[in-house]
């Protein structure tokens, strides 16, 4: 089996920040805060967060904050719950949550809860269980979970549960590993895992492993490194990760590395990007690959940072 080309991945992530004339960076402009979260968390898992100038990052993150309290994907864009979580997570990585006005950010998120318990992504009202997770994760990090109606939020998520034990984006929506992570993560954070049929969901999740060892997100779809995160984290939260073949999954992720220039792709021999590099390395961390910091499956932050937030140590 190959090995993790950790140094090359660090180089790759640092190089993405400086890349000129790349079309990807142009179309990524509006979601740069997500990109920063993926890249910086990867560096932290690899133990290399100190290669980044934290003051520079933090000052840029704070400039993305809107007067409503929410964060935009970049300076001059509109606020959205997606980037608000990334901002909070990035500040947590640098132990700088204290510069945030917790009430202001929490008010923004609280204002997005709907009557049925669901959450909108922003003032335009798109509803999705992704936003339920983000709201719950973010408020929990800010110690403000009591500002929303948690019971209604949980009931909405449970209403998105399907016959296969999985969850979709809205009630009746097809089970999808990404949505399952969001729903399972939110239920874990709110102490509501009893709503999950763990054996049924666990079996569906481990059915996602295909011959190559990789995981797909829905039946009969191609495997993709990003599901190493969505499926694995869910399996860990419901305590069923021993059901899959870990060795084969590790091999699959390692096969998706660009050994020359660093970075990880969705499938072997495809082009690499920061998103898949993060999910690959976070997945390996969940699989207890050597010399990687452990990552928390529900908060998607390194465990030492989660401990700092909740246990002040």
């Amino acid at each position: 089996m190959g090995e993790l080309a950790a140094e090359r991945h660090v180089k790759y992530i640092l190089s993405v920040e400086k890349k000129k004339d790349s079309f990807e960076s142009v179309v990524m402009e509006h979601l740069r805060l997500n990109g920063a979260y993926w890249g910086l968390t990867t560096l932290d898992i690899l133990g290399k967060l100190d290669t980044v100038d934290s003051d520079e990052v933090i000052s840029w993150v704070m400039q993305c904050q809107h007067e409503s309290g929410g964060f935009a994907g970049n300076i001059g864009h509109d606020p959205h719950i997606l980037y608000t979580l990334s901002a909070v997570q990035v500040l947590a990585l640098f132990n700088k949550l204290n510069i945030l006005d917790f009430d202001k950010v929490s008010n923004y998120i609280t204002g997005l809860q709907n009557e049925d318990g669901s959450f909108s992504g922003d003032m335009w009202g798109e509803v999705d269980t992704r936003f339920s997770y983000i709201a719950i994760c973010c408020l929990s990090i800010l110690h403000r979970l009591d500002m929303i109606n948690v019971e209604k939020a949980v009931n909405y998520i449970v209403s998105c549960k399907n016959l296969d034990g999985g969850f979709g984006c809205t009630p009746g929506g097809e089970s999808h590993a990404g949505q399952i992570f969001c729903c399972v993560g939110a239920l874990a954070i709110t102490g509501s895992l009893h709503h999950i049929d763990k054996d049924r969901l666990g079996w569906w999740l481990c059915e996602r492993q295909v011959k190559s060892g990789g995981l797909n997100g829905r039946p009969e779809k191609l495997p993709d490194v990003c599901y190493s995160w969505w499926v694995l984290s869910s399996l860990i939260i419901i305590d069923r990760v021993h059901w899959i073949n870990k060795e084969k999954l590790i091999k699959y992720i390692l096969d998706c590395q660009d050994l020359e220039n660093g970075g990880i792709s969705d499938r072997p021999d495809d082009a690499v990007d920061v998103y898949h590099t993060y999910f690959g390395i976070a997945g390996l961390s969940l699989l207890e690959y050597p010399e990687l910091k452990a990552i928390d499956p529900a908060f998607a932050l390194p465990v030492d940072i989660v401990n700092r937030i909740f246990f002040n140590r």
């Binding site: 890349k19 920063a36 520079e56 840029w60 300076i75 001059g76």
Partner: peptide, 21 residues
């Protein structure tokens, strides 16, 4: 585009795109 004083991820825009934005 204002990427802050020392952009974390400086972006080189294609020209039509840059002008439109």
């Amino acid at each position: 585009q204002d990427d802050g004083p020392n952009p974390v991820v400086p972006i080189a825009y294609k020209q039509d795109f840059a002008e439109t934005m």
